[in-house]
Design a protein around this nucleic acid. Sequence first.
DNA 1: CGACGACCATGCGCATCCTCGTCGTCGAAG
DNA 2: CTTCGACGACGAGGATGCGCATGGTCGTCG
Lengths: 223, 223
Amino acid sequence: MRILVVEDDDRVARGLVTALRHAGYDVRRVATGAAALRAAPADVVLLDLGLPDVDGLDVLRRLRRSESTAVIAVTARGEERERVTGLRSGADDYVVKPFGTAELLARIEAVLRRTRAARATAPDHPVLRVGELELDTGARTAAVSGQPLSLTRKEFDLLALLAARAGSVVLRDHIVDQVWHATWEAPSRTLDTHVAALRGKLGGRLRIETVRGVGYRLVAVDG
Amino acid sequence: MRILVVEDDDRVARGLVTALRHAGYDVRRVATGAAALRAAPADVVLLDLGLPDVDGLDVLRRLRRSESTAVIAVTARGEERERVTGLRSGADDYVVKPFGTAELLARIEAVLRRTRAARATAPDHPVLRVGELELDTGARTAAVSGQPLSLTRKEFDLLALLAARAGSVVLRDHIVDQVWHATWEAPSRTLDTHVAALRGKLGGRLRIETVRGVGYRLVAVDG
DNA sequence: CGACGACCATGCGCATCCTCGTCGTCGAAG
DNA sequence: CTTCGACGACGAGGATGCGCATGGTCGTCG
C-alpha cells in the first residue's frame, strides 16, 4: 500500500514517514504541491494544505480526480470553516495538527477500508482469456492464437483493463484513471494513440470497438 | 439517502435530526443499540458510542457487517485511545462532541462519496428485455429481433430509461433529469427530436407512445 | 555521447451528434 | 367549433469526440 506525504516542514515530514514506514506502508514524501501531482499515484495522500507554492485546495481537487486515490487533509489551522471547505473539496478525512500517530494510522486504515473496493486489479485471476487472446497478468505476457505479442507497458495495462471487462464498455475516464492514474485535465489524444497501437498489434481476431462519447469495448471476432 | 441517528440524549438527537432533515436526508432516530440494529439498513449511521443498554463498539461491529452501510461514530469523550479503537472497530469516521453541524454534514458527504464510489465500481449492468427489444446496458448494445441496431449515446440512454420502466409512463422532466443531467427546459424540441430518431430506428415491433403533457411510454407490439 | 524505444502532447481533418428554431399538426377543454 | 398549448417534422449550425500523423521528452543501453 503506497502513501504519499505532502508536507513542507522537514521535521514533521520525517516523523510521519518514519511512523508510516514502521507500520508497513510504502511511503514517499514530497514538499510541494507540484511535486505531489507528479509523484502520484498513491493509495492515500496525506496532504498538508498549508503549502508554500500553490493553493492546497487546488492540489486536493486535482488529486481527487483519480477515484482510486484517497486524500487525508492535514493542517495546522483548526477552524471549522476550513475543515468544511477541505472536506467539501473532496478530502476523505481531515485532521488537525497536532495529532497522535495512532489515530492517524487508524484513520488511514478506515479510509483504505472504504476505497479498497474502488481499486481495480483482481490478483486472483492472473490469466485473462478473450477469444484467441491470452494475457498472463502475472508474467505480463500476451499471445493471440498462441503467437506471442510484444506489448509496451501502457499497451499491456490498457489491454488488460479492457480484457478484464471484455464485451462491456469501459469508460474513457475509467481507463485514464486506471492506466494513467491521471491527474490531468485537458482532453488529450494520448489514449487514442495507444488504442490505435493496440489495434495494429491485435490483428483480426480481436477488435477494440469505439463507443463514441463513452469509451471502448474489446470483443472477440468469431471466424 | 437514508441516515440513522443513534443517540440517547433527546435534546441532542432532536437537533441532529432537524439539521439532517433540513439538508435533505431521510432521517430516522433511535435511542438504543438494539433498536439501531433493528432499524438498519441505512446509508449512513450516526452512532453515539455512549449508549446505555449495550456496548457501542459491539453495535458498531455488527452494523459494519453490511458493506453498504457507513458508520460515523460520535462520542462525548475525546480520548485518542477511544477514537483509535472506534476507528479500528470499523467506523468510517469519528467525531467528538461538541461538533459543528456544517462539519458533520461535510463529513457525511465525504463518507457517502466513498461508499457511492465503491458501489459504482461493481455496478449492475442488467440486460433489459421488452418484447423483441434487447438492451445490454453493460456493452451498450441494442437489438430488435436479433438485429443489432446502432444508437447514439443519447438515444441509448433514453431508450434504456424507457425500457427500464416499459409499459408505464416516464415523465418528461424525469427523462431530462436522467439523460441530460439538467433541470433545464427552456422550451426546446431536443427531447422530441431524439424520440423521433428512436421511433425511426425501432421499427414496428416497439412503439414509443406519447402521453400529452406528461411523458412517454415504451410498449411492445405483438404481431 | 548518441541512438533508440516508449511515451506524451498537439493539431488537423472528419464524421457524427446534438441542439434549437420554425412551422405545421394534433389533441383536449370549453 | 374554436382556441390554445403541446408535440412532430424538418433542417441547418455548431459542438463534440475520435483517428492519425507529427514532434518533443525522458530514460536506457551500448
